[in-house]
Amino acid sequence: MKKFLFNRYDKETLKKKVLEDKRERRVISFYRYVKIEDPIEFRNRLYDTFDDLGILGRIYLANEGINAQFSIPIENYQALRSFVDTIPELKNIYFNDAVEDKKESFIKLAIKVRKKIVADGLDDTQFDPSDVGTHLSPLAFHQALEEEGVIVVDLRNNYESEVGHFENAILPDVGTFREELPLVEKLLEQDKDKKILLYCTGGIRCEKASAYLKYKGFEKVHQLQGGIINYAKAVTDHGLTSKFKGKNFVFDDRLGERVTEDVLTVCYSCGKPSDRHTNCANLGCHVLIVQCESCSETLLGCCSEECKEIVQLPEEIQKQLRQELRKQKKYPTHHLTRKMVGK
């Protein structure tokens, strides 16, 4: 019988399957910039075995490499290690184990072929992406943070850094990595001779960013190996006080791993301290916001009273609103509500 190399189930069925599976799971991420000659063939080979191992998550492949975030039944962890080590492009790849696990972090396996494994907006033909900065272990990075005159740069988006970041770090106010590199270059244009410490969630954005900054003339570029995920585990294992405060935003259903108890931001709805991320329940909006549980309950999981009004409409009307939104491309869905329901 031919095996399907893609998901065939709807969301509710997938959630049910995950919850019914009693096996304990572990969330893992890994990445590597490496030449992959045939990403489609590579994708199908991975999917076949990953599916057999019960892996659920997102893996992006491109000619430039692999970027993976997923969960796996702990009983299959060593089998995964053995399998990836048989693949030359992945041999000895570093597994970044999550600080916190949640059974339903992922509900399906998706392996996608893209032009790039991270959307950085760079022309890689202009510089050598393999000429990266100096990798620092979490403990070496921890010590370097105490050095006088070092510059620490957060290479994540603003919605990630607002809920957690290293003390005294530069936090670029941008919504995408594509926007970030030109801004960081501009912010540091007078500091090309200073020691620069870069960090991100798991390390992949630092790889490309450090190579880019070296190409632009920065002399002392260093990066946190394994990112915040690796740092949080290391300081816990060694009984150190974390210099990263708050939560580490992650791109799965958890939306965050708590590193320290510090709450660095407030609920967008009421202004009370909160670092709980959620997406607006109105699918025509679906904006990512920080919202406390109380406001989320009051607003039915929505970002505003307008969106709350929409989610209480019949599903068919909600679909019409979303279709109209896509046509206009410039109005939030709730701006169309009164027109379409006759209010």
Results as ranks from 00 to 15, higher is better:
M1G: 15
L5F: 02
L5M: 14
N7C: 10
K17D: 11
L19E: 07
E20M: 12
R25E: 07
R25H: 13
R25I: 10
I28H: 05
I28D: 02
S29R: 13
K35P: 11
K35S: 12
E37Q: 12
L46K: 06
D48P: 09
D48T: 08
D51Q: 00
D51N: 04
D52F: 08
L56V: 12
R58N: 15
E64N: 11
Q69A: 11
S71G: 08
I72R: 00
P73N: 05
A79I: 03
L80H: 02
F83S: 02
P88A: 03
E89N: 07
E100W: 05
S105F: 03
S105L: 01
I107E: 06
K108G: 04
A110T: 12
V113K: 13
K116Y: 12
K116P: 03
I117Q: 02
A119S: 15
L122V: 09
L122M: 04
D123R: 00
D123T: 00
P129D: 13
D131H: 14
L136Y: 05
S137Q: 00
S137F: 12
L139S: 06
L139W: 09
F141S: 04
L145H: 07
G149W: 00
V150G: 03
V152E: 01
L155P: 00
N157I: 00
Y159T: 06
S161N: 03
E162G: 05
V163M: 02
F166M: 11
E167A: 15
I170H: 15
L171R: 06
L171D: 12
D173H: 15
T176F: 14
E179R: 14
E185I: 01
K186Y: 13
L188I: 07
K192A: 11
D193I: 08
K194P: 05
K194T: 00
K195E: 12
L197H: 10
G202N: 05
E207S: 15
S210F: 10
F218L: 00
F218A: 13
K220N: 15
K220D: 12
Q225P: 01
Q225N: 11
I228W: 08
I228V: 10
N230Y: 13
N230L: 13
Y231G: 04
Y231M: 14
A232Y: 03
K233W: 01
A234K: 05
T236M: 11
T241N: 11
F244L: 01
G246Y: 01
K247Q: 08
R258H: 11
V259I: 09
T260G: 07
D262K: 10
T265D: 14
V266T: 15
C267D: 03
C285A: 09
V287M: 14
C292Q: 06
E293I: 09
E293G: 08
E297P: 07
L299Y: 07
S304A: 12
E305I: 15
K308Y: 07
E309I: 06
V311H: 05
Q312Y: 12
Q312H: 13
L313N: 01
I317W: 08
E324H: 12
L325H: 10
K329H: 04
H334A: 11
H334M: 14
H335Q: 13
R338E: 10
K339F: 07
M340V: 14
